[in-house]
Design a binder for these strands. Structure first.
Length: 873
RNA sequence: GCGGGGAUGCCGGAGCGGUCAAACGGGCUAGACUAAGGAUCUAGUGGCUAAGGCCUACGCAGGUUCAAAUCCUGUUUCCCGCACCA
């Protein structure tokens, strides 16, 4: 009897005991780095998304291993983060013990799934031997001008008296105080200069083998736009304004400066001061959520700007909708040709000026929305009549020659705000000294460890910990204060894949040699939700380390695979509130890990969203039992030619399928292969083993067990992936098999027609009337045409009526199979002659096979069309 | 608003120009085995037909092609990202 639980445990232990999956850093084999995005170890343990993700990766790693690669396949934990800290506040448990428990739970569960990680490579980000290097890199970045401090707006909860991460703001309220609006506060924060790499990050996307949608998301996120920076004069000073529409410069009727602009106050006139202040006050009191949905509002600053192109004077407003840190924080408004400006102008009754004319003439007094299409310039002085796209260029050039404008490229991409006012993260290794200012911690003093004993629940626990805060200045040794902010956890995950390569190094973050051997990650696997966060940060980090001379690669992840979302059986996202959550561990408990793995992979193509169904698991479980039983009872012997062809074809296809993550299709082929096995009386040991190997990546435990029951002493996990022999794949076998079956049916049919139930003699006349004729024609055409379409076209010209649609279907098949067309008839004759005995057995009489061209029979009106003719006597 | 991806049988899903009434599962129906079967096996599962075959189907409407579930255009609808980036 098959006891899944027992054998799964058994093989997990064996693998562990034998260090089956431990990888060598020095190997003559070609390396392959297979990696899944490491998890945040939450106390709720593995969910189905994890199980899916890791199974996809494990199959690939096992597959690559069997294909002779030296595979690095590690696992680790993104162990810093807010949930642990909140649990600490709520339950009074220390984040460290909370996290340790969660991680141990994860590890057990992952082992239960049979994942072939090299556990000796484990990386845990909340341990000082990891975060020490976060601090090290932070300092390196600081030295090289990639880290700076700046005032910035952040989310602030007045009840928690702390800054919140964006994820902690739910609809403008604090996640722990549903009645409390989150405020926007301006605080000094640490930033990483990710924008230094905007251009490279954008350009190199093209070279990546990533899902198209992720690439597009990143492109949009970085958001390059080419435009012109035009200098407007306000009160005698020049102010830059970024625009992508310099062609509409004559249509500018006002400017808007961001309400958050640093220098806003400099252009506010005395008379307007009060009003502007009121406006700013009003903005401060609104929550972040309201800010998002708020209508465009503004206030006149009292100043006017001079348009450099036509010297017109236009009013300058301060507006809530202009982004302070994009472009120059000030925009020119052309209400006739920009919808946003149009709405604003309507609201504040500012005039419109039409400067671009489309095919239809617009009435300035009667337009209901901005005209944003292309057209020809009007009301634009010397530029009238120009095509507006040409005008962009010409106007820019004109102003450039007068030093009043220049071409610039802007990005939406911002610098990375990395500081968090939170305990459970990497302390930022900086010190504030009254004499020396901001001073970096010395490298030899790393790591700056998180103090263990801290008070939770009153803002940042680090800030209230005197032992932590009070420190001597590294420069002058006088009393100083430690930075109490910690790093965003995305800092941790930006380089963990490098640490895997050399996770025990305590002298350096990693040995460059090892990293250079293993990197880049050949196959990265994870969800799409990280498209614009982790994946960009990690790319940035890689480039920054490259430029610091630490590593050599440009891109961390050569190839990326996104798994689809698994929905509950009701078609909704799995969620507790909907009660449709399926826990992978429950399923393993009930059925087995292999059944779960097999089911997850057979649901649908792994990159597509799919819907969970309980009964699938049940039937797949039974199928695996069937496999096991088959091998228990199989007669080992010789293999038929037909199976020979089938198995070689299956090897070829399954290899291809797995390589392309079409695991669902691979499973189908394996099901079919087993069916074919079952039809055979006996199968050779070699082929039985092929099946076991092909199934192994998907069901590692069961196959390991069967492998041994076949008398092997090795691990199938480390066996060589089967090779196929193209020559043995004989597609015609199938075709002829079909032919034999239809012939059988035909004989039965004729027997029925003639009411002759016990014939003495059956003659099969391979006349091949129309078919033979067609073969010959196609053969002729093959000399001149290669693809089926052309051959069909050619046939259509002359013989369409004769052959009809039906025949058209056969042609591609013929061509694809490279059937030796001339021999078609002869082959069929041969085939039938060979299989005569099968038919004789079946019908209990003599069977004669005749060539229709030569065969002459007295009563010659017997032929059925489109088939070998059958004569019963 | 912008961007991306879907819509296939009772259901999950393959297919992504010609071997398509649609792989493979699930479900259902019938038969076999059984004392019985939720176990196993076999067959069937769009319509018509004894069969060869014919007709109707891949969200909807058009188009390209000898040929379209597959390509193009429009449209409806669902999902997912980003959102005032000038």
């Amino acid at each position: 009897m098959l006891d899944f639980k027992k054998i799964e445990k058994k093989w997990q232990n064996e693998w562990e005991k034998n260090k089956t999956f431990q990888v060598e850093d020095n190997s003559k084999k070609k390396k392959f780095y297979c990696l899944e995005m490491f998890p945040y170890p939450s106390s709720t343990g593995l969910h189905m998304g994890h199980a899916l993700n890791y199974t996809i990766g494990d199959i690939f790693a096992r597959f690559k291993r069997m294909n002779g690669f030296n595979v690095l396949y590690p696992m680790g934990y993104d162990a810093f983060g807010l949930p642990a800290e909140n649990a600490a506040i709520k339950a009074g448990e220390h984040p460290m013990s909370y996290t340790e428990n969660a991680m141990n739970n994860f590890i057990t569960q992952q082992k239960t799934l049979g994942l072939s990680y090299d556990w000796s490579k484990k990386v845990i980000t909340c341990h000082p031997d990891y975060y020490k290097w976060n601090q090290y890199f932070f300092l390196k970045f600081y030295e090289n001008g990639l880290v700076y401090r700046k005032k910035s707006s952040v989310n602030w909860c007045p009840k928690c008296t702390t800054v919140l991460a964006n994820e902690q703001v739910h609809s403008g309220k604090c996640w722990r105080h549903e009645d409390t609006d989150v405020e926007i506060k301006k605080l000094e924060q640490w930033f990483i200069k990710t924008t230094k790499y905007s251009e490279e990050l954008l350009e190199k996307i093209k070279t990546l083998d990533w899902p198209e949608r992720i690439k597009i998301m990143q492109e949009n996120w970085i958001g390059r736009s080419n435009g012109t920076e035009v200098l407007f004069e306000i009160n005698g000073k020049k102010w830059p304004v970024f625009t992508t529409r310099p062609d509409t410069l004559y249509g500018v009727t006002f400017l808007v400066i961001s309400a958050q602009h640093e220098n806003l106050i400099n252009i506010v006139s005395k008379e307007q001061k009060k009003e502007v202040k009121n406006f700013l006050k009003k903005l401060k009191s609104v929550s972040e959520k309201e800010l998002e949905t708020m209508e465009k509002e503004g206030v006149f600053t009292g100043s006017y700007a001079i348009n450099p192109l036509n010297n017109e004077k236009v009013p300058v407003y301060a507006g809530n909708f202009v982004i302070a840190d994009y472009g120059s924080g000030m925009v020119m408004a052309v209400p006739a040709h920009d919808q946003r400006d149009f709405e604003y102008a309507k609201k504040y009754k500012i005039q419109l000026k039409l400067v671009i004319q489309g095919e239809k003439k617009l009435d300035i007094n009667n337009i209901i929305k901005a005209y944003t299409e292309d057209g020809v310039l009007i009301n634009s002085g010397n530029f009238n009549g120009l095509d507006n796209n040409k005008a962009k260029e010409e106007i820019t050039n004109y102003l450039e020659s007068k030093k009043l404008a220049k071409k610039v490229t802007n990005y939406k991409f911002r610098d990375w705000l990395v500081s968090r006012q939170r305990y459970w993260g990497t302390p930022i290794p900086m010190v504030y000294c009254d004499k020396c200012g901001v001073v970096p911690v010395l490298e030899k003093d790393l790591p700056i460890k998180l103090p263990e004993k801290v008070k939770f629940g009153e803002g940042n626990p680090l800030a209230t910990n005197k032992d932590f805060v009070n420190v001597k200045c590294p420069k002058c040794k006088s009393n100083a204060r430690r930075e109490t902010d910690t790093m965003d956890t995305f800092f941790d995950s930006s380089w963990y894949f490098l640490r895997y390569c050399d996770n025990k190094n305590n002298k350096l973050p990693f040995d460059a040699k090892k990293v250079n051997y293993w990197m880049s990650v050949d196959q990265y696997i994870g969800g799409a939700e990280h498209a614009c966060m982790h994946l960009i940060y990690a790319r940035f980090f890689t480039k920054a380390l490259r430029d610091l001379g630490i590593i050599k690669i440009d891109e961390p992840f050569t190839s990326l695979f996104n798994q689809g979302m698994l929905h509950g059986s009701d078609g909704n996202k799995m969620s507790k509130s909907l009660g449709n959550v399926i826990n992978p561990l429950d399923m393993i408990e009930k059925y087995s890990a292999d059944s779960l793995r097999f089911t997850l992979m057979s649901l649908a193509s792994p990159d597509k969203d799919s819907i969970w169904n309980d009964s699938n698991l049940d039937s797949n479980y039974k199928w695996l039992i069937k496999v096991f039983n088959y091998f228990e009872n199989v007669k080992v012997g010789k293999t038929s030619k037909k199976l020979d062809s089938e198995i070689n074809k299956t090897i070829k296809d399954v290899t291809d399928d797995i390589e392309n993550f079409k695991y669902n299709i691979a499973i189908i082929r394996l099901r079919k292969l087993l069916e074919n096995f079952e039809k055979e009386g006996e199968v050779s040991k070699e082929y039985l083993e092929v099946f076991v190997k092909l199934l192994h990546p998907i069901c590692p435990h069961l196959t390991e067990e069967i492998w041994h029951s076949l008398g092997n002493k090795t691990f199938v996990s480390l066996e060589k992936w089967p090779k196929y022999d193209e020559k043995k794949i004989d597609l015609e076998l199938d075709y002829l098999e079909e032919e034999l079956n239809t012939t059988k049916e035909d004989i039965q049919y004729v027997m029925k027609l003639t009411k002759n139930e016990k014939p003495n003699k059956v003659t099969i006349i391979i006349a091949q009337d129309w078919k033979y004729d067609l073969y010959k024609k196609v053969e002729g055409l093959l000399k001149n045409f290669k693809n089926p379409g052309d051959i069909i076209k050619e046939l259509m010209k002359t013989d369409m009526k004769k052959y009809g649609q039906e025949v058209v279907k056969i042609i591609p098949k013929l061509v694809e199979r490279k059937l030796n067309i001339v021999l078609a008839k002869k082959k069929e004759l041969d085939f039938f002659s060979k299989n005569k005995d099968i038919l004789e057995k079946e019908f209990g009489c003599k069977i004669f096979i005749e060539d229709g061209d030569k065969f002459k029979h007295q009563k010659s009106n017997f032929a059925l069309p489109k088939k070998p003719a059958i004569l019963i006597e």
